[in-house]
Each structure stands twice: as structure tokens, then as C-alpha cells.
């Protein structure tokens, strides 16, 4: 079984595949993330964060769910991604410095 997104490409998936693939969603945004510092707030298991890490200089994935963050870290290790950090936090009170990111993503967060 495959999941598809608007481009018509197909991707391996199934019932666990309930969100668009990162490359499709990020592609739709039309942003050039090369060399940028990205914060993915409400990142869950890092679906978008890991996708953004392919181009971005660094990605911070923030989520209140420790279990999801642990799964995200494991996925990053598996994929050999070293420029993503996972951090516990809530969108309403981010413990992050002012003016420290070039791009902030709220995907399915608000």
C-alpha cells in the first residue's frame, strides 16, 4: 500500500503514513532552506525536521511529547542525520534565544 501526495509521486506508507511526506510538504512551501537555521515547533517524531535537515544548516525539533522526541532521535541516528536536535518544549513558551532562527515551522501545530 502506498500513500500519495499532490505531485502524483507515490511513497511507501500505510495507515501509519498519515501526514504528507516531508519532501512534498517542504516542496510546496517553496523555501530554499540551504544554510539556514530552522525551528520545527510541534515537530512530533521529526517528520519535517529530518526532511528539512537535508538542506538546512541546522534544525531544532521542539515538541512536548518525550516519547515522540525519543523516536525522532532514533530516526535521526538511523538516517545518519547529525544536524537535527530534539528538544522538549511547548510552542507557547519556547526556551530559546531571541532572533536565533531564520525559519520557524508550525506544521499541524496551531
Amino acid at each position: 500500500m502506498n500513500a500519495t501526495a499532490s505531485s502524483g509521486r507515490t511513497f511507501p506508507g500505510g495507515l501509519g503514513f498519515l501526514r504528507p511526506p516531508a519532501e512534498i510538504e517542504l516542496g510546496a512551501y517553496g523555501l530554499d532552506l540551504r544554510g539556514l537555521r530552522v525551528a520545527d515547533i510541534g515537530a512530533g517524531e521529526g517528520r519535517l525536521a529530518l526532511g528539512a535537515a537535508r538542506d538546512a544548516a541546522s534544525v531544532l525539533a521542539v515538541d512536548p511529547d518525550r516519547g515522540a522526541l525519543a523516536r525522532g532521535r532514533a530516526a535521526a541516528r538511523r538516517q545518519g542525520v547529525s544536524n537535527v536536535k530534539f528538544s522538549e518544549g511547548a510552542a507557547q513558551s519556547l526556551r530559546l534565544p531571541d532572533a536565533s532562527f531564520d525559519v520557524v515551522i508550525f506544521s499541524w501545530t496551531l
Partner: peptide, 24 residues
Amino acid sequence: MVDALQEAHRILVDRGVFVDARPD
């Protein structure tokens, strides 16, 4: 929600980009 948006604003550099994506 406004609090979260203000936080996004605070941590962004000037002219930084904020993306809001949600089911429609």
C-alpha cells in the same frame, strides 16, 4: 495561539520566515 505566534516572532531573525500549515 497568539502566544505561540508571538514566540515564533520572537525567535525569528528580522525578515525571518514563519510557516503555518494545517489541515484545511
